[in-house]
Design a protein around this nucleic acid. Sequence first.
DNA 1: ATTATTGTATTAGGCTCTTAATACAATAAT
DNA 2: ATTATTGTATTAAGAGCCTAATACAATAAT
Lengths: 125, 125
Amino acid sequence: MAWNLQSDRPIYAQLVEEIQRRIVTGVYPAGSRLPAVRELAVEASVNPNTMQRALAKLEEDGLLYTQRTSGRFVTEETERIMQAKEEMAADLIRRFIESMGTLGYTSEQAMELIKKQKEEEQCKI
Amino acid sequence: MAWNLQSDRPIYAQLVEEIQRRIVTGVYPAGSRLPAVRELAVEASVNPNTMQRALAKLEEDGLLYTQRTSGRFVTEETERIMQAKEEMAADLIRRFIESMGTLGYTSEQAMELIKKQKEEEQCKI
DNA sequence: ATTATTGTATTAGGCTCTTAATACAATAAT
DNA sequence: ATTATTGTATTAAGAGCCTAATACAATAAT
């Protein structure tokens, strides 16, 4: 599991996204315990403070909760997790369509281009 | 024409994207003269230095060129402009499919969701 | 009781981005 | 020739992000 952090955007924001991605895809299952802040920080090669900041945000969003000295856990509310996943996808779609729109492409044209790009991928393999 | 600058990403990078968008969509036609740095800076509500930085990048990319005291102009090479447009679209698609992939969606599912989202848009109107 | 592990808070410093205020350089317009 | 307009460069200051180094607080494990 790579963290793939870029320097063109705040790191803590990228950490939030990556952890959220791991939650909604089941890498960190509902109810499971997360690695400790310090462990996660080492794994992602960031400062514990930065990781802490990201985790605090996810807690604020209700995807994580803390048990003082046992550690942090993914929420047991699977409904909340599915909702987060759908929101993430909807957001990606909305932003994609909007960006393609400003370039002058309709959703239909966008879907056509996705098909084409996929066909090209097929040839590569 | 709005600039829509966000605070979660370097402003100069957003300026590059917006000006590039205006070039490839013909808002700033091939060969035409751009407003002066200071004018653009006022229009976008940013510091002239920041706008200068964005323009220098676009010049480096070959989409603009400078005539010392007459101003800056969009390249006359329409081929270069079309290429830039296609690159921008391809990049958006690649990143979109990649992000949807990390969420567990295939390109087919992504296209399905685009369709659905579009149908919902229809209902709203 | 003691120890280790957990989350959390604080302080200092460096880095990049952004703004602000100038100044300079070149040339088109007058 | 003079003036105005163009791009460009410089310096200083402030804000946000990140790291580093600590220290503290709570509790599970021993």
